[in-house]
Each structure stands twice: as C-alpha cells, then as structure tokens.
Simulated scan of single mutants.
Amino acid sequence: MTTVLDILDKGTAYLEKRGIEEARRNMQMLVAHQLGCSRVELYVRFDHPIDDSDLEPLRIALKKRGEGIPIQHLLGTVYFRNHEFKTDARGLIPRPETEELAEWLAKHVTLSEGGRILDMGCGSGVLGLSLAADFPKAEVTLADVSPDALALARENAEFTELSVSFLQSDLFSEIPEDQSFDLIVANLPYVPDAEELAPEVRHDPALALFGGADGMDLIRRFIPEAAKRLAPGGWLALEIGHDQSVETEKLLHAASLTDVLTLKDLSGIPRFPIAKRGSV
C-alpha cells in the first residue's frame, strides 16, 4: 500500500536527484493537485492510501517535472494578484516581478470613470486582467501579436469572468492613431537573443522572450509610439531586463515624457520604468 507520505518522500527524492529546486514543495503541489486538496490538507492525509487511479497520473507528472517541464504547466493554473489564471506553453509563465508591478499600479494610479487601459504584449493576460479587476470602471484592452497568446488570454477572461477587449496587433499597428489611453502597460520581450536560458524558461514561447541582440528592439519601437497614445496625464509602465534601465529612461525622456523613474523589484533590480505624459 502506497500512502500519501510514501509518494511525497519518493517523489521528492526523485526530483532532488534531477536538480529540481524546491523539490518537496513541487511534489506537494503535484500530489495536492491530483488529490484535489490543498497542500496543508496533505498533512492530515499522510497515512491515507493513494488509489492506483491517482498513482499513474502522478508518476507521469513527476517524470515530466523531472525533465524540466514547469510546475505551472503541469498544474495548468497559477495565482497572480489573488486570482487564479490558466497557464500553458502559449504564453509566458507569470513572474512574481510582474505581480509587483501590478500591485504598485493598483496603489499609485488613479483613473477617472471611463478611463482606458492598454496591456500591450498581454501574453496570457494576467497583468491586464488584474488591472481590470483593480479598476472595474475602466475600459481595458489586451493586445498581442500572437494569436495563441490571445486565445489563452481570452480563456483567462472567461475563467475569471472579467470583461475586457482583445486585439491582435504588432505593437500599435492595429490601434487607431486617434485612440488614447490613460494607462499603458507592457511586459515586452527583453531577453538578448544570445542569452542562455534556464531549462524551464525554454518552455516559454520564444516570441515572448527574445528582443534582439541586446533585448531592446521592441522597447525602442514601443516607447515613442506609446508616448503618442497616452492621454494627457496618462501613465506608461514597463517591465525590463536587469541592465536596461539607463537606456529605457533615455528613451522615455526622448519621447517627452515626465516623472521618469525606474522602480526596483524585491531583489533590488531596477525593473519597472514608469513615466507620465504632461497634463497640458
């Protein structure tokens, strides 16, 4: 008879041998997901036997995790800003850093009723949909060049029951020139093409990761166009690579934006350039 504790111990040892970080936590998540309970509830089930019908799916998931398949893809969902979202290989796995940006915007940005928000390069939609929840009276548009990413974002909108609009667009190519926004956010591809990625990150779509020789290709295109689409007093917020803040701030100043600063993430890395368009 295989108990919950047996499978946790054996699975943890298997993942540790394959170099998976936080092996115990990963195994707890896989078992809890298969049994339909929380990780905390596992503690009171240690002596419970696991049915054969649950063992085989667990073995398959464990093997995939040992091969480097992200835990988020195996579980199929991820929590971001108190909401549960679907996640798979069609979009970038939501990062904790992006959640930090969403939290800052929710605390510091004020929008009038009927304000407009644009999430450019929305991927799975977690950032734009979180802002839709934080600003329920705003009109929110999620845009991406990838039809696969947009399909996932649409599923997440249905999953969370949040009302937003979608647009397939290469940056601003499909957005009318006279349309303006009070807040534009973007987590665009910023990884240099030659950078070596961690095995798990390689499961993210390349289209969502790589941004040219120095990672800045799309950011250079995006900022001048975004500045023209901001309403007076509007906000622009980005997520960038660890060494891109100096050039990004120069681009923001060159686009005649004001109040330029780059917020640091919890690791102390300058990660989130913020700027505004003047009120006049």
Score class of each variant (00 low, 15 high):
Thr3Val: 06
Thr12Met: 04
Arg18Gly: 07
Leu35Phe: 07
Val40Thr: 15
Arg45Cys: 08
Asp47Pro: 07
Pro49Phe: 09
Asp52Tyr: 06
Asp54Cys: 09
Leu58Asp: 08
Ile60Thr: 15
Leu62Glu: 05
Ile71Glu: 00
Thr77Asp: 10
Val78Ile: 14
Phe80Gln: 01
Phe80Leu: 06
His83Val: 09
Gly91Asn: 04
Glu97Met: 05
Glu103Phe: 11
Trp104Glu: 11
Ala106His: 12
Phe135Pro: 02
Ala138Ile: 07
Val140Glu: 04
Ala149Ser: 08
Arg154Cys: 05
Asn156Cys: 04
Leu162Thr: 10
Phe166Cys: 11
Ser173Phe: 09
Leu183Phe: 02
Leu188Met: 11
Val191Thr: 03
Asp193Trp: 08
Ala194Leu: 11
Glu195Asp: 15
Glu195Gln: 15
Leu197Glu: 15
Ala208His: 00
Ala213Cys: 11
Ala213Leu: 12
Gly215Ile: 02
Met216Tyr: 06
Asp217Ile: 07
Asp217Tyr: 08
Leu218Cys: 09
Arg220Asp: 07
Arg221Gly: 06
Glu225Met: 13
Gly234Tyr: 04
Gly241Thr: 01
Lys250Ser: 14
Leu252Glu: 05
Leu263Val: 01
Leu266His: 08
Leu266Asp: 06
Leu266Asn: 08
Gly268Ser: 10
Gly268Cys: 08
Ile269Leu: 04
Arg271Ser: 00
Phe272His: 05
Ile274Trp: 03
Ile274Ala: 03
Ser279Thr: 15
Val280Gly: 13
